[in-house]
């Protein structure tokens, strides 16, 4: 399983949308890494998220690959990930931070 961490602002991603996103993230993971994702959701409590020191509407979606990813591939995957997220949530491109990490050295 590929680890995927999603951090969203409380109340910003309804349960229905979260379920749809989880499904799409799994499909993305299988296409990108050949394995489904273990998706972990964390909601930032109300009045607890800040971007540029102002109340935040930003979400973070972060995958950790099991093999190093070529940069050209990573860029393409990150674009797909941002498109997936903005398409499902309706958020602006400026509200999503997407990360694809290489595996941690042992």
């Amino acid at each position: 399983m590929i680890r995927c961490m999603c951090v969203v602002q409380a109340g910003q991603t309804p349960d229905k949308s979260q379920a749809a996103l989880t499904e799409k993230l799994n499909t993305f993971s299988e296409k990108a890494f050949g394995q489904p994702a273990s998706v972990h959701w964390t909601a930032v409590p109300a009045a607890s998220g800040f971007t540029a020191a102002k109340p935040s509407t930003s979400s973070i979606v972060s995958f950790t690959a099991e093999q190093p990813v070529a940069q050209e591939t990573r860029v393409s995957l990150l674009q797909d990930l941002c498109d997936l997220w903005t398409g499902e949530t309706g958020c602006s491109i400026n509200e999503i931070v997407a990360v694809i990490n290489d595996p941690q050295p042992q």
Partner: peptide, 29 residues
Amino acid sequence: KSKIAEDVTRIHCDVTGAPATFVHVFFFE
């Protein structure tokens, strides 16, 4: 939380020169 977020954002920007728009500070319990 609001004041710490202001401080951490300012500190990061002062030390690194990065713009504040890049800085996210999220609090959990």
